[in-house]
């Protein structure tokens, strides 16, 4: 599943960068994430409870920030396991400076699903991804405000 899109923020790329690199904030704004425990630098153990419509699952796994180039880009590597299937995603995030102090956040990546999620979830998957993304950006916006 492709994850691609962008979102405009009324904040500097530095401000966004700082938010995103702060585990506490990240826990707050990432939909479903209930706990983020630092294992080593830029690497976290993540626990998520995702509840969307008919699907409710507890996910557990890793979140890793890689290829950091402050404050322009980084790659988020996520692996999450659950009884209904596993999810892993590599998402490249770019923070592009715009006029008037605005920043465009662009993301481009792929999510890889397995198990029941891959097999029977097709009908709703793009919706799930959209919803989670929207929630994330809204929360980030709030955080920046």
């Amino acid at each position: 599943m492709n994850l691609k899109g962008n979102y405009q923020f009324d904040a500097s790329s530095k401000a966004i960068w700082d938010c995103l690199m702060n585990p506490e904030v990240l826990t707050r704004i990432t939909p479903g994430i209930s706990r983020l425990e630092q294992i080593e630098e830029d690497q976290f153990k993540a626990i998520a409870d995702v509840k969307i419509g008919p699907v409710k699952g507890s996910f557990e796994g890793n979140l890793k920030v890689a290829e950091k180039k402050e404050p322009e880009r980084f790659v988020l590597k996520i692996t999450q396991k659950s009884k209904i299937g596993n999810v892993s995603a590599d998402v490249a995030i770019a923070l592009n400076k715009k006029e008037d102090g605005q920043t465009e956040m662009e993301f481009d990546g792929k999510a890889k699903l397995s198990g029941l999620l891959a097999r029977t979830g097709q009908r709703v998957l793009s919706g799930v991804a959209n919803t989670l993304t929207k929630q994330f950006f809204k929360a980030l916006e709030k955080e920046l405000a």
Binding site: K112, L113, S114, A118, R119, T120, Q122, R123
Partner: peptide, 14 residues
């Protein structure tokens, strides 16, 4: 099948 080898329509809903 997707590129990872997952059968993505393995149910009567799909």
């Amino acid at each position: 099948y997707d590129e990872y080898g997952q059968l993505t329509n393995g149910s009567y809903m799909d």
